[in-house]
Design a protein around this nucleic acid. Structure first.
Lengths: 246, 246
DNA sequence: TGTCCGGGTTGATCTGTATCAATGCGATCC
DNA sequence: GGATCGCATTGATACAGATCAACCCGGACA
């Protein structure tokens, strides 16, 4: 979650730039992977996996945004991960989904059946190494989010999310933050609320307040302008800038 | 966090049963590990690492309890991990601590200098495999905790923590839950509060309420009796029992 | 035996966020 | 153009949990 997408070698004839799978592969390894991979696309809102149900594939996200959620039967829902291009879905060695996975935009996945993928992994220690690095990065991100959920105010949460989105340069086209600090939100207010442990009303109110305070400008519902990124960071409640250089 | 400690081969002459490091090692590998390991003990309350400062060792917990925390300068603190015997501290490939690590009881660590440990790892793929499994287990646990922090009520949080402690059989002596459902809390109310994203007053009040409702009995401050574990689980807000068999 | 001290409990009150309810607003479809 | 629908905003009110404050209790120590 907390990793910037850098330019990576492509997976053979594949448009995907898997951080996990291809970053350090030799050409013959990429070919072997290509032989067992297949693509799958989902429409916005479509369910990809349900907690507890068998999931015999792993996948990298090629294009679009998906969410990982945990929820309680009474309807309470918590988003536990936001999946963006080059993120990895699925856990080697486990055949059941641990989370509900849902496409929030149109989504393209590069999939592998679990078994053959695991067999290939046997001879590709660097892929397992990458998977470990990614899991540890995800763990750090999850723990940062625990601080947010446990201790931050609504205003700090919203600011943190906006800052995160800017840092990850989340845009439907996969582009980098423009010079004017314009950000396209890839998610609805409801998704934001579920990520932040708030209600949609609180999200809406806090966005309005940040606008009135001049921290952000709203351009339509889904576009946010950030005139002064430092001012936004000052609202996040974090001590530092999280290692960003701006 | 979410792993039961099973009997494991010991690390040569070492009393520790590292899940991560020793579980699948050959005798000669254990010897190699033994040659570079060293023990360190800490008093309750002592600081083991501080976020952002260099940490040139990794370690397994042999005995005692430690916490991982993230905090904000203004004093707000969130516990992001509870470390118990056989848990692993430190991340291969990273030389700075990401969290504050503190001993909450008297603590014994089995340490390795990072460099030589990483070099040994080169030839022990099964250790890296174990580290990946553990990281993914931790990630699942962290995400479960996100649901708790984002969406559960105070009563549900307390119940969840008690249930977790029972499941992990957390006791100073490392023993297993007794037949009468007696649990020793290894942590203070303040630590509980920081884990649950609550205040100590709320923790105290909810414990009192659970006692009045007959879900638990308090025996002194640190011992809790659970007459009916199912009744406690019903208070956690979780749909299922998390795969426990009782 | 009294004092101190750290941790825990309990009470009164405050407040940030949830909840309930109404309204706005743009897109789509007839 | 009007009806409809999904999403977002805004307002009024309720309430869970925080905050502030007092008190309790057991152990250490003089």
């Amino acid at each position: 979650m907390a990793i910037a997408s850098a330019a990576l070698p492509e997976c053979s004839d594949c448009p995907i730039r898997h951080r996990a799978v291809c970053a350090r592969c030799e050409p013959e390894e990429l070919d072997a992977l290509s032989r067992i991979k297949f693509y799958k696309t989902y429409a916005a809102g479509q369910t990809i996996a349900i907690r507890g149900e068998p999931l015999e594939t792993v996948a990298s996200i090629v294009k679009g945004t998906a969410t990982l959620t945990r929820s309680i039967e009474d309807g309470r829902t918590q988003l536990v991960g936001l999946l963006l291009p080059s993120d990895f879905i699925g856990r080697p060695g486990r055949s059941e989904a641990q989370y509900d996975v849902t496409a929030v935009t149109e989504l393209t996945l590069c999939c592998f059946h679990r078994r053959p993928f695991e067999e290939l992994l046997e001879d590709m220690p660097h892929v397992r190494e990458r998977l470990l690095e990614m899991a540890l990065d995800e763990l750090d991100a999850a723990r940062d989010w625990m601080l947010l959920l446990g201790r931050k105010t609504a205003r700090e949460r919203i600011s943190s999310l906006l800052a995160l989105i800017v840092k990850r340069s989340i845009r439907p086209d996969g582009g980098i933050l423009g010079d004017k600090g314009r950000v396209e939100l890839p998610i609805t207010r409801e998704t934001m609320a579920n990520y932040l442990g708030l209600t949609i009303e609180t999200v809406s109110r806090q966005l309005t307040k940040l606008r009135k305070d001049g921290i952000i400008q709203l351009e339509g519902k889904r576009t946010i302008l950030i005139p002064d990124f430092g001012a936004l960071l000052a609202e996040t409640g974090d001590d530092d800038d999280g290692g960003m250089i701006f």
